[in-house]
Amino acid sequence: MKLRLLTILFFLIGVFYTNAQEPELQSSMVRGSEIYNDFCVACHMPAGEGIPFVFPPLAKSDYLKQQRTASIKGVKFGQEGELIVNGETYNNTMAPMGLDDGEIADVMNYIMNSWGNSTNEMVTIKEVEAITE
């Protein structure tokens, strides 16, 4: 219980801190978390941990960090075939979710800045728009 309060406190401090820095990123992440809990959570799980050998993790994912464009492309157009994440090979299908470019930018900002992930550069609608099949 104490631990949980402490976690919440840290979370709030974190939120205020980031908020003060980057209100734009922050509001994109809030929208992104709604998208995540609607479209992604059933496979990638609440803390981005994925399901071992079936659905790759997003939390602390080397693929997500190193393959930014490919990751956005996967969300936009779907993902199929082999994918190596943190040394583990996944071979599965993710259907395109039918999200618009703004929703994709939001959910990318959420997953790229949650669960120990962080990025210096915010994903923008423009960036998503520019990625083609």
Binding site: D38, P96, M97, G98, L99
Partner: peptide
Amino acid sequence: VYVRGQGG
């Protein structure tokens, strides 16, 4: 068809 999330 409305292709979105689990729908299609």
